[in-house]
């Protein structure tokens, strides 16, 4: 069921800002660092590996991915992980500004990034989802389900021949699956299983994951800036936009940029990083499943 939700998400995403500015992919990848930091912390707190891996995927900032990975790994905390994933996605406007201000200076937040959009051909938009599925499937076969459904939804959108399917996918299908998923997860939130100290720790780990996702992306942007010339520097806040909470995160970054400098519009750069994060999060989920099975025997 979480996979069907990806069809709707893919139908809603416009990869245009990413295709015209592909270096945003790097931020979509860097931001997933929070997932792995959280896995290590969860293990240190005493969670068994399968629960630690499932808790770490909260950092993917993607509800369906978190639920899919937790279900596949047969985690005991699927209810708590679902609640944490969706709750913190809604709290992005509170979490991200705090995390970004922690690791950036006012001068860095004022870096301007002019936007020069490149034309993206329709052929590119159609071939992109097909090729991404092939590439992701070859590198991490366990990710092909997640990536494939996301890209299938996007292909329905970009082919411009299946308008009724596109409208169904992004509207009724998404809403129906959300309702059924919520009810299904709720059945697993029995009081004796849910109201435990472990659930509280999972909530804490979720917050840790989101904070370190943001910090990871921002620090990566700052690292890149060491090597970039003065006129091509990246505003580090764009790194924070690489989390998968779309489009909330890009709006937060735009607001923060305008607050520092009312003439500095970073929205399109942030949207590019945000959609890259959508790809990064499903790839991360797939990689975790691949490694969990092959390497760790989970």
């Amino acid at each position: 069921m979480p996979l069907l939700l990806f069809v709707g998400i893919g139908a809603m995403i416009d990869f245009g800002p990413l295709l015209s500015n592909p270096r945003m992919l790097l931020f979509g990848g860097a931001v997933q660092f929070g997932i792995f930091m959280t896995i290590v912390l969860a293990v240190l707190l005493g969670f068994p590996l399968k629960d630690a891996l499932s808790a770490g995927v909260i950092g993917a900032a993607d509800g369906p991915t978190s639920i899919f990975v937790a279900k596949t790994l047969n985690s005991n905390y699927i209810g708590a992980i679902s609640v944490a994933a969706y709750s913190y996605m809604a709290l992005v406007p509170i979490i991200q500004p705090f995390a970004i201000r922690l690791v950036t200076t006012e001068k860095e937040r004022k870096i301007r990034m002019p936007y020069h959009p490149k034309q993206v051909s329709r052929l590119t938009r159609i071939l992109f989802p097909i090729c991404v599925t092939i590439v992701a499937g070859l590198i991490a076969p366990d990710s092909v389900a997640l990536v494939g459904f996301l890209m299938f939804g996007n292909l329905i959108r970009e082919c411009h021949k299946l308008d009724s399917l596109k409208e169904t996918a992004e509207g009724p299908l998404t809403n129906l699956i959300t309702i059924f998923l919520g009810i299904t997860i709720a059945f697993q939130m029995q009081a004796e299983q849910f109201l435990t100290f472990g659930t509280l720790l999972i909530m804490g780990l979720g917050l840790f994951a989101f904070v370190f996702d943001t910090i990871g992306g921002v620090l990566f942007a700052k690292l890149l800036n060491i090597f970039l010339p003065e006129d091509q520097k990246v505003n580090p806040m764009i790194g924070g936009a690489g989390i998968s909470a779309f489009p909330m995160s890009s709006r937060v970054i735009q607001k923060m940029a305008l607050k520092e400098d009312p003439t500095n519009h970073l929205l399109m750069h942030a949207v590019g990083a945000n959609v890259a994060g959508q790809i990064g999060s499903v790839v991360a989920g797939g990689i975790i499943l691949s490694l969990a099975g092959n390497l760790l025997g989970v």
């Binding site: 979509g28 990848g29 896995i39 590996l49 590198i139 990064g280 991360a284 975790i288 490694l291």
Partner: peptide
């Protein structure tokens, strides 16, 4: 614990390669 560190190293490398 070692598994989690291994996961961190290989996971980030894998994501970087895919991106």
């Amino acid at each position: 614990l070692f598994g989690s560190f291994k996961m961190m190293g290989l996971g980030m490398l894998g994501i970087l390669i895919v991106m």
